[in-house]
């Protein structure tokens, strides 16, 4: 993999590859949920920047997931 690839781009595409067996919309939801659970907010911002700037570099389902990540989240009750 080229060293110039953004880490967030690489990681998001890798997550998508591991949700390939899940149908499209559900995969996007799963990816967005995973990123919300495990990624620092600045990493999420960088991913959204990649989606804005270089959408072609992202897996199609990651792009859908980024749309979900842009939506505000409800507070968790656990």
């Amino acid at each position: 993999m080229a060293a110039t690839v953004q880490p967030e781009e690489r990681m998001a595409n890798q997550i998508a590859a591991n949700f390939r067996h899940v149908p499209g919309d559900r995969a996007a939801e799963a990816i967005a949920a995973h990123i919300r659970l495990f990624w620092d907010p600045r990493m999420r911002r960088r991913l959204l920047e990649v989606a804005d700037r270089q959408a072609d570099d992202l897996d199609a389902v990651v792009l859908v997931a980024t749309q979900l990540l842009r939506q505000p989240q409800e507070a968790s009750g656990g």
């Binding site: 659970l37 990624w39 907010p41 507070a75 968790s76 009750g77 656990g78």
Partner: peptide
């Protein structure tokens, strides 16, 4: 992100904790 869990720590530690993961 679990509000109830964070509350336990916030009450004991006297600080507001962030609900987002770190690095």
């Amino acid at each position: 992100s679990d509000d109830a869990v964070r509350t336990v720590f916030e009450e004991l530690w006297g600080r507001t904790l962030l609900p987002d993961p770190g690095l």
